[in-house]
Design a protein around this nucleic acid. Structure first.
Lengths: 205, 205
DNA sequence: GACTTTTCTGGACGACTGTCAAGATTTTTG
DNA sequence: CAAAAATCTTGACAGTCGTCCAGAAAAGTC
């Protein structure tokens, strides 16, 4: 049996990587259901079609598996959000589209977002995750900044805040919406949409 | 040995409750250092002057202990923040004081805040914590609202947003600051202060 | 077909977890 | 001081955890 490092860089790289993403997807699902604290390797394996031993064939240890998960999440996440930037023609169209997209992903991908905030918090305690988490966070910040600055462009109004502030504001609104939504508050998504549109209008005057 | 419920409502309630808060303080310290996922009862006991068995003498189980911790955190937290509302005479004084207080608690109580966000996230996975967490969250929202509405009062400017939106915005800014601060970014607190003052000015026009 | 390599299984390990209870210790009570 | 009650320690329990490994199963090679 070759070393993990060798296996990664061999001929059938694609097949090996394919299984890795397959297992990472099972891990992602388990994590989004149970959260980091209650997710075990055996539980992850049960959400796949393999036994628990195989995880150590494709990943060195648990940290590498979860790190890989986080990276995989990022790809899915940015792709998801980048569809939002869309091709709005007017400032108002962009503002409404942004609010609707936020509310939409809150409704549909609540458990995934819950996982993201969980992992981001874990990175505050476990340094192993920090680099990847910060990387994702920055890409999310850029994504928000693209929208906000484009809004300023379309509306002709100057922005009152910078990139980091804008991200903090909208991320806070979203997290608050997530908390309410998962607590069973019916109109949490609607309220988020209204808040987002309102605040975006306030940041460019 | 009487039941836990009986012990709580007996003559020396004060002494019993005193030890509970003492143990809860040890738990709070452990949790803020390790995070929820890595905190065990034995670890908590080692941060106190007792053995691990005593925890089940004062608390029914781990959930009750942590729930008690969260409640205790709330008391400390609201007290801490309520000193912020202070007695500002002018709108500008309040705005500066608010920003400075945010930056100050970010610098001094970073690990406690990190714990709060961790526990709030846990409540999204474990229903047992949800009630207490939502209670704290609401009291924080009211605290923010007191500041924001007072600012509107002092400045004579009308507010553009409601209570929930205001809380989401400032909580997001703070969390973003916490992430940067704990990642070793030196001027994270200063940036937070500037952001908070800026955004507060934007919400009332 | 046989032989080699890759992939996967299932069990074992030591460490750790929450929980519990028997008994030692301390404090309170009469 | 002695009896009783409260408090605390210690060790044990049944699980679960991440990790590892011997060997079964499958895939690839000649």
């Amino acid at each position: 049996m070759p070393q993990v490092e060798d296996r990664i860089s061999r001929r059938q790289v694609d097949k090996f990587a394919e299984r890795r993403t397959q297992l990472a997807a099972a891990a992602l699902q388990t994590l989004s259901e149970l959260g980091y604290a209650r997710t075990s390797l055996r539980e992850i394996a049960q959400n796949s079609e393999f036994s628990h031993g195989v995880l150590h064939y494709y990943f060195r240890d648990k940290v590498e598996l979860i790190t890989h998960c986080v990276r995989q999440y990022k790809a899915e996440c940015v792709k998801r959000y980048d569809e939002i930037v869309a091709d709005a023609k007017t400032a108002d169209e962009l503002r409404k589209g942004f609010g609707a997209a936020m509310a939409g992903t809150l409704r549909e991908d609540a458990t995934l977002h819950r996982l993201w905030y969980d992992l981001r918090n874990q990175s505050l305690f476990e340094e192993a995750f920090r680099v990847d988490v910060l990387d994702i966070d920055q890409s999310l910040e850029r994504m928000i900044w693209r929208i906000v600055s484009r809004y300023s462009e379309l509306s002709g109004l100057p922005l009152a805040v910078g990139s980091g502030t804008a991200y903090g504001v909208f991320d806070g609104l979203f997290q608050q919406g997530l908390l309410r939504h998962l607590s069973g508050i019916e109109d949490a998504a609607d309220e988020l949409q209204a808040s987002v549109e309102l605040v975006l209008g306030q940041l460019a005057r």
